[in-house]
């Protein structure tokens, strides 16, 4: 996770003589520097205590925005999560207690509207 965050951000204001010929991107992994979290209008929230760590959300996330460590889900990479909600759709676990964040019954992961006040740092 931390390694990815160090990827160099592309310079977005290069003059035409300095852009890469043919548009070749020769810095692998540099897409990490492209912040897509601002696209999100709905924010996924996880109840860590009731999560079974089945890792299905990690498999299904199309943006690799669910980091894991030691085989366990750490949370969300909100800098890149676009709020598509696939993790919510795919989460198989019906919780037994109300969700720690939303207070609602339902899945371990639940979507709430972005208020605009949240910070986009990783939820850890």
């Amino acid at each position: 996770m931390s390694e990815r965050k160090e990827a160099q951000a592309p310079e977005l204001d290069l003059p035409w003589k300095e852009v890469s010929p043919g548009g070749v991107v020769d810095k692998p992994g540099s897409s990490v520097a492209y912040i897509t979290g601002t696209w999100r209008s709905m924010r996924p929230l996880r109840d860590h205590d009731q999560c079974t760590q089945c890792l299905i959300c990690w498999i299904m996330c199309p943006d690799a925005a669910i980091p894991i460590e030691d085989g366990k889900v750490k949370g969300f990479d909100y800098a890149h999560c676009k709020g598509c909600g696939i993790c919510v759709e795919q989460c198989p676990v019906n919780i037994k207690e109300p969700h720690c964040e939303t207070g609602e019954m339902g899945k371990v992961i639940q979507m709430v509207p972005e208020s605009g006040d949240e910070d986009n740092a990783d939820d850890e």
């Binding site: 290069l14 003059p15 003589k17 852009v19 548009g23 070749v24 991107v25 020769d26 692998p28």
Partner: peptide, 29 residues
Amino acid sequence: NYSLLDVENPVTMGAWDFTDYYFEHKRQQ
């Protein structure tokens, strides 16, 4: 200069080039 088969030096070719870059690439071409 680049090869898609060179796994030691991975590159992306033919990538999305938005309003912020297409013009510069065409000017360079």
